[in-house]
Amino acid sequence: MRTPVVVTETKAAQTAMKTTRKRPPYLFLVPFFLFYCLFWVVPLIAGLNLSMRDSVSGEFIGLANYARVLSLSNTSFWRALYNTSYYLVGTLITIIPAAFALALLLRNAYSRLQGLIRFLLFVPALMPPIVMGLLFVYLFSGRYGLLNNVLLAPFGSPNLDWLKDPKLIKPALIILGIWRWTGFVTMFIWAGLDGIPQAYYDAARTEGANRFQIFRYVTVPLLRPILLFAALFLVFDAFVLFSGAHAILGTGGGALESGLLIVNLIYRTAFYGAGGNFGVATAISYIIVPILVAAVWLFLRLKSSED
């Protein structure tokens, strides 16, 4: 049996007060923060030095690498930033509503089939992204692609060359993202809906709330922790996305670099070919960091000002 935990404001406050008295088991923090310092803080700080040196001579050159990244003649960086943001927004605004709808449907479906449906929805998340990328190449390809031949041709659509046309590469990547994560996010929202006590809905109904009001003022606020977790997960995914795009488009990032993503650009700059430039690649990382922090901060602010 699931017992939804409902803690009221005062009880939470009491809990917080009670916890202050005892001496915390500080040693529990040690393993995490040891590896945290060793494999996250050290590279993060060492990288600052790296980003200010010429990668060939090792000379200190100040902010020259940063200038190179940001100079408008080096359009790859701006393109990669634009593409990654495009991908992030594209996946967020499609996956979360779609997953919400699927989760609501799942609650109405035959209970005997629910277990099977949940498993099937989850399967894409279990697929190796690299194999998925390779499969999508054939799925999206212009002449032989299944998407064109089976789904779009019957509606009289011309053959779209998804992976060659710069306008279609990003939507193709977003479709890949939607396919991969919608079921995963659905699981979270479904379980979240399951955890809302029926009494809340009953109370809202006796107060005379209509369906939309119940959804807006009961369901959504109670699901906030879950929606937030799902959204942060998608942000994380967008900024580390490499496999799918790498498998589909290679190091070039596709026609006009319209599918070039941040991590792929860092990879290409640092490790690809003979002229790998560590200084410039690291500078890209440090330019990205404040942008990421600002984006998430803004996002959290928007979320909390909603209520």
Binding site: L50, F239, F242, V263, I266, Y267, A270, S285, V289, L292
Partner: peptide, 18 residues
């Protein structure tokens, strides 16, 4: 939790040298 914001993939070059 700020590790979420700056994942290892993003700081791969300094991590590689380290």
């Amino acid at each position: 939790i700020s590790v979420i914001l700056i994942p290892h993939q993003v700081i791969i070059v300094p991590l590689f040298t380290w």
